Amino acid sequence: MNPDRIIEIFRRVLETPRVEANSDFFELGGDSLLATRVLSAIARDFGTELDYEEFVDDPTPEGLTTRLAAVAP
């Protein structure tokens, strides 16, 4: 699985092009409210829901991609 789709979600939600695979969502200015928007977009795009704690544990596109790959059918 490739982090590009999550990078695009981060860019759209944070309204910045400065997102790379290892970019920390919160260091880029994200907050808990915006994180819920990312989680909703991930659930919609990937068909898999992650919870907020999983997001906080590794708030990078790369980390979230790894988590999605681990739970994907």
Rank of each mutant, 00 (worst) to 15 (best):
E62R: 15
E20C: 04
P61N: 08
E8V: 01
P73F: 07
E62H: 13
I7P: 00
S40G: 02
E8G: 01
L28G: 08
L39C: 02
F25T: 07
L28C: 10
P17I: 13
L68N: 07
E54P: 02
E53H: 13
V56C: 12
E62A: 14
F46P: 08
L34P: 07
T48G: 00
L64V: 09
L39R: 06
V13F: 10
F46Y: 15
L68H: 04
A70L: 14
A72W: 05
R67A: 13
T65N: 12
R11L: 02
F55R: 00
R11I: 02
M1I: 11
V19G: 05
P59Y: 09
R37G: 01
L68E: 06
P73I: 04
R18L: 14
L64P: 03
V71L: 10
A43E: 11
A69Y: 14
G47E: 06
P3T: 01
D24Q: 00
T36Y: 02
R67Y: 08
T66D: 15
E20I: 03
L50E: 03
R37M: 11
F46N: 10
G47T: 00
D31S: 09
I6H: 00
E53T: 12
V13P: 06
D51E: 12
A72L: 09
N2L: 13
G30M: 04
S23A: 11
D31P: 01
A70W: 04
T60K: 06
A70D: 15
A41E: 14
L39S: 04
R12C: 07
V19C: 10
V71R: 14
L33V: 14
E8I: 00
V56Q: 12
L14Q: 09
T66Q: 15
D45K: 08
P3C: 00
A72V: 02
P61H: 09
F46Q: 11
G29R: 05
L68A: 07
T36D: 01
E54K: 14
A35D: 03
T65W: 03
I9T: 05
Y52S: 04
L33W: 04
P59Q: 10
E8L: 02
T16D: 10
F25A: 06
E27H: 11
E49P: 02
V13D: 08
L14N: 10
R12L: 06
R12W: 03
P17G: 15
P17N: 15
F26T: 07
G63K: 13
R5S: 14
V13L: 08
D51L: 08
E20L: 11
E54L: 11
V71H: 08
L34Y: 09
L50Y: 02
T65R: 11
T36P: 00
L39M: 05
M1W: 09
E53F: 13
D31V: 05
D57L: 07
Y52P: 00
D57Y: 03
I7S: 01
F26G: 06
L33S: 07
T48M: 12
S32F: 02
E8W: 00
S40L: 06
F55E: 01
L39T: 02
V19P: 07
F10P: 04
T48I: 14
R67L: 15
I6R: 01
G63D: 12
N22C: 12
R18H: 15
M1A: 14
D51C: 10
P73A: 14
D24S: 09
R37W: 06
S23Q: 04
P3W: 00
A69P: 11
L68D: 03
L68Q: 05
F10R: 03
